[in-house]
Amino acid sequence: MQLTVNGTSHEVDVDPDTPLLWVIREELGLTGTKYGCGIAQCGACTVLVNGVATRSCVTPAESVAGQSISTIETVEETETGRRVVEAWVENQVPQCGYCQSGQVLAATALLTETPQPTDEDIEYAMTNLCRCGTYNKIRAAVRDASEA
């Protein structure tokens, strides 16, 4: 099947039900997207599909063939993504960092769709788990990135 990831089209030969997560990690070698739970609970595997935050661990690769997929590796190629990353650095958000690819992409999707989110918008969109408990810094960084 054809998968368009980070603007490049790839021909991948996998079982159609292979989760997008494992295609990205193992076939394309992009390891910024993380495996956390495999059942769409934690969000560490978040990627953007046509700009929408999507949990790739339960997304069959076949279902997104031909769509525009982007991963953390190219997040800084958009103005919003750049702003989010800078806000993440400025607020010193990450601790262990393992969930942060997903958090940054979830924030990028939110701010692309809703540049001036309300607190409720943020609560609704930012649902990824962080075991280090960086939630307050995440909220502050999203607010900073939205005001910039």
Binding site: G29, T31, G32, T33, K34, Y35, T71, I72, E73, V75, E76, V85, W88, V89, Q92, V93, P94, C96, G97, Y98, Q100, S101, V104
Partner: peptide
């Protein structure tokens, strides 16, 4: 002092055991 690994961890560049090749 800002932590020295925060940018890599905000851009997916940080590597963990699970990423070893």
């Amino acid at each position: 002092t800002p932590r020295i690994d925060v940018r890599d961890k905000s851009t997916g560049k940080a590597q963990y055991s699970i990423d070893v090749e």
